[in-house]
């Protein structure tokens, strides 16, 4: 079995975002780039499956659509333990564009399980994974919080509003994963970092795809009213404010 984890290269959530060119583009100066947190967890889970011989998982690859600037993030994924990587050499124009590029690569390379994170922490689209499954005409399972392989059968637990379901799915398929998929992201060890230097990153040139959306502009969140403090000895005042001023209880 071959697993592919699709990874997004995103600004660390704690870096302050700023915009340039009339608020249409992210100002990348000083940004700390990381593997999208969900994708890091997906990769961790994929490697756990590979570590367990009973699953039959033979390789874990990662794929990324982005420019050469994203190579450190790809190398990091390799250092964590992915066997090889694929990079489609293109600026990600929108989710549809990215999913189309990934679908093209997957058709050529063929994987049994394709894992995507529930969202990329930059554009918060929650769309690439399911788009990809539709483009490939693969079944997909969304909101996956656990992924196992038992006697060759993929067993998934997916979250539904108000509970969870245990589902079986045939391969190849796309899993869109969320919290629970792995506990802590695996960290790269020194040996992994050394090995990553020589692991292959296969380069693909993009296919022509017309994006469906366009960012007109970005704006910062509206500043919130400053905090009104209530004396710790008198919480009743808080309840009164919530009732009469905010009118929320």
């Amino acid at each position: 079995m071959k697993i592919l984890v699709c990874i997004s290269n995103v600004p660390d959530t704690t870096t302050k975002v700023k915009f340039v060119e009339g608020n249409t583009k992210l100002d990348t100066t000083g940004i700390q780039w990381v593997i999208n947190p969900w994708d890091e967890l997906s990769l961790t889970r994929a490697l756990e499956l590979k570590d367990d011989a009973s699953t039959g998982v033979k390789s874990v690859s990662v794929a990324h659509v982005g420019s050469i600037a994203a190579e450190p993030t790809i190398r990091k994924a390799l250092a964590i333990g992915a066997d090889d990587a694929i990079r489609v050499n293109a600026e990600p124009a929108d989710a549809y564009y990215v999913a189309s590029q990934l679908a093209e690569v997957i058709k050529k390379e063929q994987f049994d399980i394709v894992i995507c994170g529930i969202e990329s922490s930059d554009f918060n689209g929650s769309t690439v994974g399911s788009m990809l499954s539709e483009l490939l005409d693969y079944p997909s399972v969304s909101a996956v919080s656990s992924l196992k392989i038992e006697n060759g059968q993929v067993v998934i637990s997916r979250e539904i509003d108000g509970g969870k379901e245990i589902v079986h799915v045939s391969t190849p398929f796309v899993a869109v994963v969320q919290k629970g998929i792995a506990k802590e992201p695996r960290i790269a060890a020194m040996r992994g970092i050394m090995m990553a230097r020589t692991k292959p990153i296969k380069l693909y040139e993009p296919i022509a795809v017309e994006p469906l959306t366009q960012v007109v502009s970005f704006e910062m969140p509206k500043p919130r009213a400053s905090c009104k403090f209530v004396d710790a000895e008198n919480p009743k005042q808080l309840i009164e404010l919530l009732q009469n001023e905010a009118k929320v209880i």
Partner: peptide
């Protein structure tokens, strides 16, 4: 909805109908 179900279905519809998606 942008909940679990919507997140699974909307992107598929987007591809099926070639319809742009505004999520969340």
């Amino acid at each position: 909805s942008n909940n679990n179900m919507g997140k699974g279905l909307a992107p598929r519809l987007s591809v099926r109908l070639k319809a742009a998606i505004g999520a969340g």
